[in-house]
Each structure stands twice: as C-alpha cells, then as structure tokens.
C-alpha cells in the first residue's frame, strides 16, 4: 500500500530532515520569506506620516493625517471608520496582495495603526485634540501671542509609539 510504504521509508531509520530534503523543503525555507526591510525606515513611518508631510519613507504620496490614511472625512463616524478599514484591508492585506509583499505589509500596518487609533474613542479624542489643536488653534494662538505649536505636536509624536 502506498501509504505504508511511504511511512516505512520514514521510520526504517531515524528521521533526519536531510534524508528527506530531496522530497521536501528544508524546514527553514518553509515560512521564512526574506524581504528587504530596514529598521530605520520602519520605525518612524507612523509618526512621520502623521506629523510631518516631509516624510521620506513612504513610496506613495504620504497622507498627513490618520483620516487620510483611511481615506475618510475627519468627522467620520465609527461605522464609516470600520468600513473604510475593512475596504482597505481587503486590498492591502498581504494575504490578498501576494505579488508585492513588501509594500503591502507596510501599507497594511499603516492602515491598521490608523484604525487602531481612530476606532478607540479615547485615543481618537487625544489624536483629534492634537491634530486640530495645531490646525484650528492657529488663529487663536496667533491672536493670543507667539505661543509655539511644537510642544503640542511633539507630545503627540512621542505618545504615538507603535
């Protein structure tokens, strides 16, 4: 019987993967995809993408806010956030896009990170305060005097460690 013959092949002597390597891939090559990856680029993506438009890490036009990452209006409700996230996941998740593994994981992680912040009411409120604080507050601040926006923005940046 075919099945027993192949099992005896396995068992007749002690099993070593090298013995079987002709018939099977070595264990390591099974899952370890190697794809180019750079730590220094990765570790700042989220922060830069959201705090500064001069980011150099992204390959496409860099969104300036988490709302733009998800492609939604700043006033989007919870339902819209979820649905936008899901739509992007269907396109960007590495399981869907296998050909461009490199970019898809990066992009999915960015979408995921935006979603993680915006779908949590508390984190979103914090984020909104910082985002709008620096934008809407502009006229208010200028009338109030020369108060810098930087402390606000810096604090957000360090909070958003992912």
């Amino acid at each position: 019987m075919a099945s027993s013959s192949s099992s005896s092949f396995l068992l007749s002597t002690s099993i070593t993967s090298s013995k079987l390597s002709s018939a099977s891939p070595p264990p390591c090559s099974v899952t370890f995809h190697s794809r180019p990856f750079s730590v220094s680029a990765a570790y700042t993506t989220a922060d830069r993408a959201t705090t500064s438009s001069t980011s150099t890490t992204s390959t496409i036009g860099t969104p300036t806010s988490l709302y733009e990452v998800l492609g939604i209006q700043t006033g989007a409700n919870f339902h819209e956030i979820k649905s936008a996230y899901r739509k992007l996941a269907r396109v960007l998740h590495p399981d869907v896009v296998k050909l461009q593994q490199n970019s898809s994981a990066e992009e999915f992680i960015r979408v995921q990170s935006a979603y993680a912040t915006l779908s949590d009411p508390e984190k979103r409120a914090n984020y909104d305060r910082k985002l709008f604080g620096s934008r809407i507050a502009r006229p208010v601040v200028s009338s109030a005097g020369g108060r810098s926006h930087y402390p606000v923005r810096r604090r957000w940046e360090t909070d958003q460690c992912w």
């Binding site: 396995l10 099993i15 993967s17 079987l20 018939a23 099977s24 891939p25 070595p26 264990p27 099974v30 899952t31």
Partner: peptide, 15 residues
C-alpha cells in the same frame, strides 16, 4: 509551532 513545522517538513509538507 516550530515543532509542528518540523514534523510537516519531515512529512514533505510545506506549511
């Protein structure tokens, strides 16, 4: 998980 993968590799399966 690595042990499961090892067993699969022994059986000629790619996880």
């Amino acid at each position: 998980l690595t042990r499961i993968e090892r067993a699969c590799a022994m059986a000629g399966l790619h996880v």
